[in-house]
Design a protein around this nucleic acid. Structure first.
Lengths: 374, 374
DNA sequence: TGACGGTATGGTATCGTTTCCACCGATATG
DNA sequence: CATATCGGTGGAAACGATACCATACCGTCA
């Protein structure tokens, strides 16, 4: 871990570098000198040019142009201005769900003249805390994060002492007034389970994948409740974490005494592992077992059979979170921004069932249903 | 476009807020006062604690702890320190190629105590220039970018006047000494074309997709040269830009007088469109036409038939670029960093052919070949 | 004419940190 | 014993931009 490093190199004397390529960027007072005005006037020109006579304005603008002057961010920030950066804390950028989020949030940031700093946690709560601290030290104006653990006491406390607005995404922060934008995971999983039940499947297996995340737990809860309400047996397998484990689990379950006739997978990667395993084992889909997954993915409609999924409005989640953040940022009153009573702070978005072939909807039905919703 | 906004709110008088929850973060001089030392000493403690007596060190550390002091970044930066942020300029975060890049670069940045700011251009050269300027104004320490147009005069000039190190990724900057890390697109496409020729296909069609990007042009050049060298007819189609156009192009070509017996797609999305179209048209792969794509993707090995591809070492490209950037950053001499003669600045990485079923390699052969290389 | 309101402008303290320089005492060196 | 050396320390001047306040000027109204 390197120590802090040297400041700018000494640099040539002012006179020497006057005509040659500059060693350091021009400053506001150099602009002022060149334009024959005071620093105040230049500052005013930069910040909108109000209360400056047209001639002076022009002269200053020319000087700025000639010197290629750009204001020094650090100095402005020091005077209390916003940094025009926001931080994003997510498990991984490579995950398609979060990369789509990042893209959308970046767009919102850009629309608000801000930049986005992305950090990743790999769902490690400690890395998460670290990242938040680092971003705060870098004086970001606001923070969007997908909490690794919704119930972390430490996280909640940290967030509530923050002086900048925070919005949680995909997963809420339990027992706090931190605003959040999440999908309705419970409702989505209810829809999915009911859909499979509606198809007449009798033994619906739920593959949770390995996860303690809030979203997965919600989906699991919904599956269990729905099954029980329908008087059906809850069949769980939590062992699938990669292709191998999927193959092992599915093979043993299918050759067991009471094999499942449908599989509901609770997340993207689990769906893919399960699909891969079923293919490899030459299990007919949906003939022998139907498959329905949570979360859409690019090739879900292309593979044979196409895979039915519950689709989340990812881009919308991210966009709303970004907008909520900037709403808080632009609020005139500096009062603790997260406990204003007026606005609905906890946003929950609808998800959508996309029936395709793998759940037993025929190709044709699936197509019509699809265009129906779209 | 909002104007600049207000500086910090006036804030209560010092005395008043002394005992209550602080309105603004503690400063270095407050720490100094509490520890009964000068600001210089505190500063020294923060920056490594050299030349400070053990007792004083302890006292200062305690004061820092008690006040929860963290140094103000803006002030340090103003004094000439690095911002410990680097900028990344890519076409899109949602693109799997670039999201993997971003992930890897972020990891390198973190390892160097830096943060990553991500901006996207949608391959628009103007947005690219804008983004670079914005990042420079934010005083990033360095820059990594995937140039939209390798031959842009404007871009080259901008980059060469920059005072911070730059590394190009995936695509070089033509006629310049900007360091770059790219895959050997030419060699990759030669391998692919030769592989198809080796299978005995006679009419190999190349689907370029819509692109003027450097990478695609390189691959196209390689395809053409290899075909000509083999005395075979170059078959090009540049019209595929989505699923519909793929279906149209493939249907009309296949029903034409001299239909292709193999397809080589030059990028990820084109491969998927082509595959989708072939499936929909019930064309047998590789029976009627073989398929080989550039760039791997998650389900390429899962779909039936599995799709043969040329795979790029994405993570390695990104990691090397990140490391090259920090190498420059840490170089002691501040001389124009990009034209040091010592190091190889233009890195070109090998790509790898991953034969699967779609090109005609049988499943078994494909498997063995695969594990052979892996 | 004198008081007043408004506009254009500049001087200067300030933000929080680093660093140059000066200082002090103590030990080492001639 | 005088002087260099060195570890430990603090005062105060930067860094670059902003904003409070003061000033100078002009026109207008009573």
């Amino acid at each position: 871990m390197a120590e802090f490093d040297n400041p700018r190199s000494p640099g040539p004397s002012d006179k020497l570098s006057a005509m040659t390529r500059r060693a350091s960027p021009p400053t506001l007072s150099e602009v002022a000198r060149r334009a024959g005005v005071g620093t105040t006037t230049v500052s005013r020109v930069i910040n909108g040019g109000h209360r400056v006579s047209p001639e002076t304005l022009l002269r200053v603008r020319r000087a700025i142009e000639a010197l290629g002057y750009v204001p020094n961010q650090a100095a402005r920030i020091l005077k209390g201005y916003r940094t025009r950066t926001i931080g994003l804390v997510i498990p991984s950028i490579a995950d398609p769900f979060f990369s789509e989020c990042a893209e959308a949030i970046q767009a919102v940031a850009r629309a608000n003249d801000s930049l986005l700093i992305v950090t990743t946690t790999q769902n490690d709560p400690r890395a998460e805390i670290d990242n938040i601290n680092v971003l705060i030290h870098h004086q970001v104006d606001g923070l969007i994060l997908a909490p690794a653990n919704s119930h972390s006491q430490m996280l909640r406390e940290l967030l509530e002492t923050l002086r900048v607005p925070v919005v949680a995404i995909d997963r809420p922060v339990a027992q706090s007034r931190i605003p959040s934008v999440v999908a309705d995971n419970f409702r989505g999983a209810v829809m999915a389970t009911e859909h499979l039940i509606g198809h007449g499947y009798k033994r619906i297996l739920c593959l949770t994948g390995e996860s303690t995340l809030f979203t997965i737990r919600e989906r699991l809860r919904a599956y269990c409740l729905t099954m029980e309400k329908a008087g059906m047996e809850v069949l769980l397998d939590t062992s699938v974490k990669d292709y191998k484990s999927a193959e092992y689990a599915i093979e043993s379950l299918l050759s067991g005494p009471k094999p499942p006739d449908a599989i509901f997978t609770l997340k993207n990667s689990t769906t893919i592992f399960a699909f891969e395993a079923l293919q490899k084992l030459n299990v007919s889909i949906p003939g022998t077992v139907a498959l329905l997954g949570y979360d859409d993915f690019e090739l879900a409609s292309t593979v044979r059979p196409s895979i039915s999924v519950v689709e989340q409005p990812i881009e919308e989640i991210a966009r709303l979170a970004g907008e909520a953040l900037f709403d808080q940022l632009l609020e005139p009153d500096g009062q603790s921004p997260s406990n204003r009573s007026g606005k609905a702070q906890q946003i929950k978005l609808e998800t959508r069932l996309v029936p395709r072939a793998s759940c037993g909807c025929t190709s044709r039905l699936a197509e019509s249903a699809r265009s129906d919703v779209a």
